[in-house]
Design a protein around this nucleic acid. Structure first.
Length: 767
DNA sequence: ACTGAACGCTTTTTT
DNA sequence: AGCGTTCAGT
């Protein structure tokens, strides 16, 4: 076929570019994937050898898609397409020894790393860390993404917490090294180290991967940048594609300047801009474009489409989240009933996974087929993890974390005490736990019964370890039999055992498929595959079901009909982003990504009351709602509070910023981004209890002045100064208010007992 | 050593 | 609210 015939001039430019660095700035829906795959095909046509091409993506799903499309253009092309992490894992199997890594290293997932951090804290004798293990783990991860070592971290530590983090980081590294394990970040970091310290290896790889392509370049972090950079020194035929407006992984260390500075970084960069959108209606695009212009830190970009105008974007307000879910379900049902769409044409996006639960229920009772992407991954389920841990131990006998997980599964009488003795012994002799268990007789303090159990375990292990080089399916089946795990689940008194066995059956199926697709592969390969798999990878557009996923997971996908739910302050934008303008802009980009997934119809909703962590809370509408262009919206308040009073129904839209968003870059602090959030106007009933029909038990609350504290209201505190009500928690006289102070951050007060004064209502009231 | 109960914390997002 | 971790009882 002619690779160029159906391309626009800019697309063609990108496709036919062969040598030298190339930056493709691709707006949402501009046919980016198509351009990349065509370019690969073009390179191959020009005589570039397939093994000289390396295409890197962020998710396996994106990689799979790209591989498929290249395969369709050039059947049998052996181009390496994969994720950064997968690529690095493979590289480390071959070159890991350069950084002291066995080729059989284990890859730790998030749960493993947390476990490891806890163990280190334990070993350090820190009973009550001043920061949570999660935070420490996060700090370590961030450090790694920035290529910081424990030493450099210790060096720039400012306070005790920093020092603790640095110390735990050091202990953590040592623990992983001893266990011959790497975490997700290490996969990248170790490769960076190799590339930096071994010029010959770097040069070889640079020459080998003569043509490198990186997708979603705006989401690369320092480590990923360093890898790409090192592979493009002698042969800078690097093609990166991305869209700064779709950068949504800053929290994970993504560095936007990688893409913004690309032109300065490489010599003679060719830049191609793809601004033509082939996906969405004019209306949807206008809404997205209008919104994203509120970002100050941004390069202007046009989004053009010749698609039809389409329907207005519908914004709906519901009373509470159950109604939001039912409303969406009802809408989907009628869309499908009318025959315009299939279930698989529809997606529902939310900011956080926790919100999917309500929708699950609503879909179930409306008999709408759905699939949830994200949440607890299949491979994180306990029973799956147990079996997988055993596989990990077989593959890497030094993996202490894996051993501690399975040594007493099913229960064989090894409790904490015995295990502690074993740990002490292993520490003293510098042995992996498995070796310590082998010498259980020498371990001081062990009871005869425990000794025997440990030895039995080792015998069992040895037996299974003999299967190391067998196909994954065989090893799993044998493990389940010989350990008695299958029997153990069968015996489980409650019905849960059935489900768990079913999950393990699924694991076996996955292994069988893997064995089939990768003849000659070992459990090591299987383990790497499943550890690096993400929930999104299992998602399938063609299942005839509505898709329910987070906004993050939605990147790179498209659907004819999209619902974005929970447009509330604290949710989107997420409360953790409130204080940081950059994070706030990232939230806006996240919303932007969601909007631009939609091809034909877009529905946006929020509710006035949301139950979160068991608490009912009145919500404030998202500030982003006011940044959408009114002309392209149709607004529907179904929360009931406005019934019969049209003034209220319009209210929410009275408070939008009067000025158009296109503004000089140096606009005053009163620019739209900083506009204080209006309260949910038209919301006469202030507390959750009142709106819910006074459902809360207890004495009637004397409404009094407390009702003046509504989300959005401005308040004054004698000490903390000016603030804004973010949320009201609970109802009645003891209700609490969460106040975001301009200077003092967020604090919570029992309103009746606080010296807070309402000084003004930002929200629209009846005039 | 194992079981059930209280406790406390949380995840925003993911390779 | 739900979950996992820790605690108390047998």
């Amino acid at each position: 076929m002619d690779l160029l015939a159906d391309l626009t001039p800019p697309q063609r430019e990108a496709v036919i570019h062969v040598n030298g660095p190339l930056l493709v700035l691709a707006g949402a829906g501009s046919g980016k994937t198509r351009v990349i795959t065509r370019r690969v095909a073009h390179l191959l046509h020009k005589g570039v050898a397939p093994h000289n091409i390396l295409a890197l993506t962020f998710t396996n799903k994106a990689a799979g898609e790209m591989r498929e499309r290249i395969e369709a253009l050039i059947p049998g092309a052996k181009v390496w397409v994969g994720t950064f992490h997968g690529f690095c894992a493979r590289l480390l199997r071959a070159h890991g020894s350069l950084v002291g890594l066995d080729s059989s290293f284990t890859i730790y997932d998030q749960a493993d790393r947390l476990r490891a951090v806890r163990d280190v804290l334990d070993a350090m004798g820190v009973d009550e860390p001043p920061i949570t293990p999660e935070k420490i783990e996060g700090a370590i991860s961030r450090a790694k993404n920035d290529l910081a070592t424990p030493k450099s971290l210790a060096h720039r530590a400012r306070d005790d917490r920093d020092r603790l983090v640095a110390k735990v980081y050091a202990g953590y590294e040592e623990k992983l090294r001893a266990a011959s394990a790497v975490d997700f970040d290490d996969l990248l970091v170790h490769v960076v180290k190799i590339l930096k310290e071994h010029r010959d290896v770097r040069a070889d790889l640079d020459a080998r991967y003569r043509y490198v392509l990186v997708d979603e370049y705006q989401d690369t972090n320092m480590a990923q940048y360093a890898i790409v950079r090192a592979l493009s020194v002698d042969h800078p035929n690097l093609c990166v594609t991305g869209d700064p407006d779709q950068s949504i992984y800053g929290w994970r260390g993504a560095n936007l300047s990688n893409i913004l500075e690309f032109e300065k970084d490489y010599d003679g960069v060719k830049v191609v801009k793809l601004e033509h959108n082939y996906r969405s209606t004019k209306t949807i695009l206008a809404v997205a474009d209008h919104l994203i212009q509120y970002n100050v830190n941004r390069k202007p970009k046009d989004l053009i489409t010749e698609n039809p105008s389409g329907e207005p974007v519908q914004v709906t307000v519901y009373a509470r989240e159950t109604e939001e879910a039912e409303g969406v379900a009802g809408r989907i049902a009628s869309l499908v009933r009318e025959g315009a769409y299939n279930y698989s044409d529809v997606a529902v996006f939310c900011r956080i996974t926790a919100l999917t639960r309500t929708f699950e229920q609503a879909f179930r009772s409306a008999r709408i087929p759905y699939q949830i992407v994200g949440g607890v991954s299949f491979y994180e389920r306990q029973e799956v993890k147990d079996v997988v841990s055993f596989l990990n131990l077989i593959n890497n006998p030094k993996d202490d974390l894996a051993l501690s997980r399975v040594v007493n599964v099913p229960p064989r009488g090894l409790g904490k005490t015995s295990f502690d003795h074993l740990i002490a012994f292993s520490r003293e002799h510098g042995l992996p736990l498995l070796e310590a268990a082998r010498r259980a007789r020498e371990v001081p303090g062990l009871k005869e019964k425990a000794i025997r159990s440990f030895l039995d375990f080792v015998t069992l292990f040895d037996e299974l370890a003999g299967l190391r080089d067998h196909p994954a399916e065989t090893v799993i089946l044998q493990t389940m039999e010989k350990t008695g795990y299958r029997q153990h689940l069968k015996d489980e008194s409650r019905g849960e055992g059935e489900d768990r066995l079913a999950n393990l059956e699924e694991l076996i199926t996955a292994a069988r498929e893997f064995d089939h697709e990768h003849p000659g592969a070992t459990i090591q390969d299987f383990l790497a595959e499943i550890t690096l798999a993400s929930p999104v990878d299992r998602w399938d557009q063609q299942t005839g079901a509505v898709t329910l996923m987070t906004l993050h997971a939605a990147k790179g996908l498209e659907f004819p009909v999209v619902f974005i739910i929970g447009l509330e302050e604290g949710l989107l934008p997420h409360s953790r982003a409130f204080e940081n303008p950059n994070e706030l802009e990232e939230e806006r980009r996240l919303f932007f990504v969601g909007i631009t997934r939609a091809r034909k119809e877009l529905y946006i909703s929020r509710c006035r009351i949301r139950t979160f962590r068991g608490q009912q809370q009145a919500t404030a509408q998202s500030r982003f709602l006011m940044e959408l262009p009114e002309d392209f919206l149709s607004y529907d308040d179904r929360s009931g509070v406005s019934a019969g009073d049209s003034r209220w129904a319009q209210g929410s839209w009275d408070r939008r910023p009067a000025s158009p968003p296109r503004r000089p870059p140096s606009s005053s602090p009163s620019q739209p981004t900083r506009t204080p959030t209006p309260s949910p106007s038209g919301f006469r009933l202030t507390t959750a209890a009142q709106l819910g029909g006074g459902g809360a038990a207890g004495p009637m609350a004397p409404p009094g002045d407390l009702d003046a504290f509504r989300p959005g209201a401005s308040v004054l505190h004698p000490q903390y100064g000016l603030g804004r009500v973010v949320a009201i928690e609970g109802a009645g006289p003891n209700r609490k208010g969460r106040i975001a102070f301009t200077l003092a951050g967020e604090r919570t007060f029992v309103l009746a007992k606080s010296p807070l004064k309402v000084v003004g209502k930002t929200g629209a009231g009846p005039r």
